[in-house]
Design a protein around this nucleic acid. Sequence first.
RNA 1: GGAGAGAUGGCAGAGCCUGGUUGAAUGCACAUGACUCGAAAUCAUGCAUACCCGCAAGGGUAUCGGGGGUUCGAAUCCCUCUCUCUCCGCCA
Length: 425
Amino acid sequence: MIDIKKLRDDFDNTAAQLARRGVEKERLEKARDLDAKRRALVGETETLKAKRNAASKEIGKVAAAGGDIAAAKEEMRKVGDSIAEIDKELATVDHDLRETLLMIPNIPAPEIPTGMDSAANVVVKTEGTWTDPDFKIPTHIEIGEKLGIFDFPRGVKLTGTGFPIILGQGAKLQRALIQYMLDLHCQKQGYTEMLPPFVVNSDSMTGTGQLPKFAEDLYHCQIDDFWLIPTAEVPVTNYYRDDILSGKDLPIKLTAYTPCFRREAGSAGKMTRGMLRVHQFDKVEMVNFVHPDTSFQQLEILREEAEEVLKTLGLHYRVLQLCSGDMGFSAAKCYDLELWAPGEQQWLEVSSCSCFTDYQARRLNCRFKDADGKTKLVHTLNGSGVALPRLMVALLEQHLNADGSVTIPEVLRPYMNGQEKLLPA
RNA sequence: GGAGAGAUGGCAGAGCCUGGUUGAAUGCACAUGACUCGAAAUCAUGCAUACCCGCAAGGGUAUCGGGGGUUCGAAUCCCUCUCUCUCCGCCA
């Protein structure tokens, strides 16, 4: 949620920045006007309440002294009725204002390129080079078939489409990747590992913004009103919901491995084959709670931390800076990391590193005590570090050998009992 | 799942029966000052959050788990929901 004061005190400038994301001015004006109306009503009702409080005190005294209080009571009853009326209107305005504010995305950082879709994204850098080998690289589906590590049909039997089964040395490789990434983040990058619940309540989903807008994309357990997490961001970020952190503890860096569950209703299309887009997948996530002064600096660090994973696995990747219109709703600035998949002949997004400034923290009500003793909103960041299925795809395709085997990156071998290659079955 | 008890400020813990001067005793913790070479101890003072008005000083409103009700007035009475604890049942 953006700061209403930005609309109150700096409307034109804020509107101009948000226009870059396609936010119509009318919506902002609506929020601004509702805010003005709200404050007017608050003034009215509070004045009346002050009057009633004073009178009630007086009535108490008069009654104790045995005086006549009938007239005063009657008058205050009328005041009470007025208060009730105003409060009712106020509740409506409050609700409308909140709804309107929740529909307004974060203000993009000034350096973000302007654009409405991915066409305006900017390639910041490309790491490594790629030269096709002298044999044809099939898709990960075929590679996986030869290695005997994927079973899509039986995934359909067990659950449905989009729930692949990973087997044998492939399952082991995935486990190795998870462990390697967690160890990298915790041992070299200062993260604390967390193993959170994979199922959360509605408050948590609302705290990170999945609800109410994206309920359709989530799996819901109706009996308990619990939700399956679409990303570890949800439990990890909500860990500090409604909390006041100590300023000297910042930055707080948490990382978690979790499965992620995404219904993504109506997402059928080009990415649906194989592992590229699935309803359940594994991911290692990084979440930072930082001092507002350092958030954009921390974003660069976070991006490097995610890159480190790809780099040490010897993978060819590129970094995109997302344009104003292609960023997630809550982000002020965002980088995507994309791996080259030579079999698919496309770049695959495996990580998204975002700085949310205070946008998410406001909704989350996550604050900290600054050095001056004041309570302020923290800034939050998160980044995938990284998502597993597409990482597997790129790894299989980039490290494929002519004989159908796949070379296991050296950093993973300690987690694979020294195994150097995935071998065809 | 069944039965019972409970939810009060950073923590502990009064108040609730008998509604008003209780934003809430007391203790601890914390901050500042005094004493001290320094510390401990002791003493003094301060110490919730959010919102609204105001340049400020300051004023106002709300908050005693959430929501609703009764009343001129609710931490206190009524209804309801949630959660926690204890015992029983089930269980990896």
